[in-house]
């Protein structure tokens, strides 16, 4: 069943008097509970389409439909609410809040997503999620004392704690070595299947492609 549709999306950047079209009518449909990988050379537009889909920037033309609702017609606050409650993000860098412990990073996400839970339930959920990504032993640590792989695990836990419908991952393994990259991708795949999350992932690493259900190749702002 399709949950997310990108329909004829175009994106043009203006630099002074020069207009540059980076996306030229992209059409993508994402199926519920599946991982779709976007691949392509640098400048092909794969990160731009991911950020438009995630509501982090607007398309110049076309539609982005999430559960049938057109996000391009929504205002900033409506998009923010969707980002907070329905989407999860894993970035190239973990982007953890430096002054929060691992446990607090996840509690913050529950808070932001306005998940209705009692304090005790929130703590239980955090513990469960940290166990799921195998980082529960570091729950009181600050990001500065975590390794790259640990940080990325925490970032994944933060992205899924509020049970989002969509997970957007932009080069989630780019800052990790080969072994850790495989661990992280195994984890993302397991979570996607267990929690029934739909994942859209950008990667340039061919070794990560076997973890995806669908692969979309982009070139010069178009799907090829």
């Amino acid at each position: 069943m399709s949950i997310f549709t990108i329909d004829e999306v175009k994106k043009t950047f203006t630099n002074g008097e020069v207009e540059e079209q980076v996306l030229n009518g992209i059409n993508i449909t994402l199926q519920e509970g599946e991982i779709t990988a976007l691949v392509g050379a640098s400048g092909s537009g794969k990160s731009t389409i991911l950020t438009i889909a995630a509501g982090l920037q607007r398309a110049s033309d076309g539609k982005v439909l999430f559960q049938g609702k057109n996000m391009t017609d929504m205002n900033q606050d409506q998009i923010r609410k969707i980002r907070a409650s329905e989407f999860g993000f894993v970035f190239q860098s973990s982007h953890l809040v430096p002054f929060l412990t691992v446990e607090e990073q996840l509690l913050l996400m529950l808070d932001v997503s306005e998940t209705k839970m009692r304090k005790r339930e929130q703590r239980d959920e955090v513990e469960k999620t940290l166990k799921l990504v195998d980082i529960d032993h570091r729950k009181d640590a600050y990001p500065s004392s975590l390794s790259g792989g640990e940080k990325q695990r925490v970032a994944i836990a933060r992205a899924i704690i509020h049970k989002p419908k969509m997970l957007f991952a932009d080069e989630p393994t780019a800052s990790l070595d080969s072994k850790r990259s495989k661990d992280v991708m195994t984890l993302i795949r397991e979570l996607t299947k267990t929690l029934h999350i739909t994942t859209l992932m950008v990667t340039h690493d061919e070794e990560m492609l076997p973890y995806a259900d669908h692969i979309i190749t982009m070139k010069d702002g178009m799907v090829v």
Binding site: R80, R83, A84, S85, H95, L108, M109, V112, S113
Partner: peptide, 12 residues
């Protein structure tokens, strides 16, 4: 940078 990330996560 931190404000940007918090905004991306959906913080008002």
């Amino acid at each position: 940078g931190l404000y940007g990330i918090l905004k991306a996560l959906g913080v008002k």
